[in-house]
């Protein structure tokens, strides 16, 4: 990928088995940069396009340090997983990643779009809604993260599957103004209350699975499978599930863990394994994706 004749990124852009490629090119600093791509084997140059990117600059997550070019290989339907130090998930299970979103690709003007679900208490919910699609640099992926990573399916998706994943996400997570009156994030307390409640019951009953414990899990399972409200990870998981015709379930296996010092991590070790095992099928979190053998890390 050449911008004003100079290469960007370090590893180029991959052409898939269908003969297509995508690139997310960083352009800040040039008012009207000229973009071309070049075939590395023949040195043949593509047609050139001149674009007029937004003049303002906003700094994204500091990690990775090469973020601006690390995103170059992103393709539509790839997954972004980020870490934020302000997430309440730290208290619950101490994850290394706390938010996830779907990269939708560029719109007709090349603006990179993101689908994400965020709590109504987040300030940006007033402008963009809670379950929404919006430009990358307006998303919390960009504005609230300390660290970002990109992931794609370990088994390459076809173009039509990528299209279907993105189309499903755009349907449930529209752009403003539709997103302002669109679907909500889960009740913020649902995740913490249900997990806490199940946790307390399991301990109280000495590791016995009671009907009340199962009821807490059923609430979580219902929320996971809801298509009328989402958390970040259920939005991404469901988009993949529906877009792949139910062939790709990235919530399973669920290798989430609990870090020492968190609520779940403080469970007696004899109960922790059982508890996580019971949570696995009913709860999908960002940590699920970064530990999934069905996904591979891009950066």
């Amino acid at each position: 990928m050449l911008v004003d004749g100079s290469p960007i990124g370090s590893s180029g852009v991959v052409v898939d088995s269908e003969g297509n490629w995508e690139a997310l090119a960083y352009l800040f600093g040039a008012p009207a940069p000229v973009i071309r791509v070049q075939d590395r084997s023949t040195t043949a140059l593509s047609n050139q396009i001149t674009v007029h990117p937004q003049a303002s600059f906003s700094l994204g997550p500091p990690v990775p340090a090469n973020l601006l070019t690390a995103v170059l290989p992103l393709r539509h339907a790839d997954i972004l997983v980020i870490a934020s130090t302000i997430s309440p998930q730290h208290v619950l299970y101490g994850p290394s990643y706390t938010h996830t979103a779907l990269y939708l690709g560029g719109d007709g003007n090349g603006t990179p779009l993101i689908s994400e679900a965020i709590p109504g208490s987040d300030p940006s919910a007033q402008t963009y809604g809670q379950v929404r699609s919006l430009p990358l640099e307006s998303s919390t992926v960009w504005t609230e993260a300390n660290r970002m990573s990109g992931w794609h399916a370990s088994t390459a998706l076809t173009g039509s599957t990528r299209d279907a994943i993105v189309a499903w996400a755009k349907t449930v997570a529209p752009t403003p103004p539709a997103s302002l009156s669109g679907l909500p994030y889960w009740n913020v307390s649902t995740l913490l209350n249900e997990v806490d409640g199940a946790d307390a019951l399991l301990v109280a009953f000495g590791g016995t699975i009671t009907s009340r414990f199962t009821a807490f899990l059923n609430v979580l399972n219902s929320a996971k499978n809801s298509t009328t409200s989402f958390i970040c990870s259920t939005l991404v998981w469901r988009a993949y599930y529906e877009g792949s015709g139910h062939a790709l379930d990235i919530s399973s296996p669920n290798n989430m863990t609990a870090a020492p010092g968190s609520i779940l991590g403080s469970l007696p070790s004899s109960f922790l394994g059982l508890f996580i095992q019971e949570l696995d099928p009913v709860l999908v979190v960002p940590q699920t994706f970064v530990t999934s053998p069905k996904l591979s890390q891009i950066f």
Partner: peptide, 17 residues
């Protein structure tokens, strides 16, 4: 995107073949 596009971003999402 087409020649002359105006992405509302410092990035430009491109694709081709």
């Amino acid at each position: 995107p087409p020649d002359g596009a105006s992405p509302q971003s410092s990035f430009c999402g491109t694709f081709g073949n």
